[in-house]
């Protein structure tokens, strides 16, 4: 790999990250009003109590000082202190990130594989009834808001038939062994993951289909067919391999975006992940938690883009030679 290319991409990454972090800080701190005042409204605090809270939250310093403290702490891995939960932001984020990764990770793997499979099926029978059915169905599902799809699933499986839990990540207070707990979590995972899959599979099926359709008419495909290679081999081995590049890009972008994109699904299914945390933190004006969340999103998007840039080098000879 070209070292200059790598260094250039890496320095872009660092500058982007610094700008994002600073913008993040500024965004939340230039908003008028103070989180202490909001606590005070529900807490009946007097001036002395408010002053001591202001000090506890580090809001007694000037904006610039707060900014430098923020940067210094961040370098040391300290993302601050949640106003609402009075815990380090890293602790608050930790649990939520784990839950989101479980949901989004599972859903992404299923979505990508099913999406690609559907796209291949549609492309290999381009313009047939199968193609039309797959394309129209996935487009319809894609155009539905995910909270709506989620609510429909809740009514069908949770309310009418009672076969699946409709809320949370586990049954509260259930005392079973680790296997029972695993099954319990898996049961709770089905509906939100299915919702994400139904809504997002179209993205992959359509990209795969279009990319495949382009490849399928290439000369070497004709050659392969002329040689008498079985159609399935042509489709899955020859065509898909060459059609994969845009799918890799889409997956990289998707993973970066989907962390924040699951907010609605997490809210509908009360899934205690990043989405729900952001929602609640906005309500509470819990700046440090919000800054932590957005920092994480920024890192996810920047990092996946960086990886896909590097992957391009590895996968595509044209990028490499330029």
């Amino acid at each position: 790999m070209n070292a200059r290319y790598f260094v250039r991409k890496l320095s872009t990454l660092v500058v982007t990250l610094y700008l994002t972090v600073s913008f993040n800080f500024l965004l939340f701190h230039v908003l008028p009003g103070s989180p202490v005042q909001l606590l005070a409204r529900s807490g009946h605090y007097d001036a002395a109590a408010k002053a001591s809270l202001t000090k506890l939250f580090g809001l007694n310093h000037g904006l610039l000082t707060q900014y430098f403290i923020y940067l210094k702490n961040m370098v040391q891995g300290d993302l601050g202190f949640s106003y609402t939960y009075r815990k380090p932001v890293t602790t608050v984020l930790g649990a939520a990130v784990g839950n989101t990764v479980l949901l989004v990770g599972t859903a992404t793997v299923i979505t990508v594989f099913i999406g690609i499979w559907l796209g291949v099926k549609a492309a290999s029978r381009a313009n047939s009834l199968t193609d039309t059915t797959i394309t129209v169905t996935s487009l319809t599902l894609w155009s539905m808001p995910d909270f709506f799809t989620g609510m429909i699933l809740i009514f069908v499986t949770g309310v009418w038939t009672h076969v699946l839990p409709i809320s949370g990540i586990e049954t509260p207070g259930l005392t079973v062994g680790w296997l029972g707990h695993l099954l319990d979590v898996a049961k709770h995972l089905i509906l939100p993951a299915l919702t994400l899959m139904l809504v997002n599979a179209a993205e992959f099926s359509l990209i795969t289909r279009n990319s495949m359709v382009d490849v399928m008419v290439d000369d070497y495909m004709v050659t392969a067919r002329a040689k008498g290679v079985a159609k399935k081999v042509i489709v899955w081995h020859h065509a898909l391999r060459n059609a994969l590049l845009p799918i890799v890009t889409a997956t990289a972008l998707y993973v970066g975006m989907v962390l924040g994109g699951a907010i609605q699904v997490e809210t509908v299914f009360s899934w205690p992940g990043m989405g729900l945390l952001i929602y609640n933190s906005v309500e509470q004006r819990d700046y440090p938690v919000l800054e932590g969340c957005f920092l994480l999103f920024a890192i996810a998007v920047i990092a996946t883009n960086f990886i896909s840039d590097i992957l391009y080098q590895v996968l595509d000879a044209r990028v490499r030679n330029n």
Binding site: M151, I154, F155, G158, V159, H162, P165, I166, S167, G168, P172, G173, E266, T267, V268, F269, S270, W271, L276, Y279
Partner: peptide, 20 residues
């Protein structure tokens, strides 16, 4: 006693109706 948190009032109401 368990206080169960719902992010969505519709789902919470359905959970009462279905007995959870």
């Amino acid at each position: 006693i368990i206080w169960n948190e719902f992010a969505n009032a519709d789902v919470m109401t359905q959970s009462l109706a279905s007995g959870s």
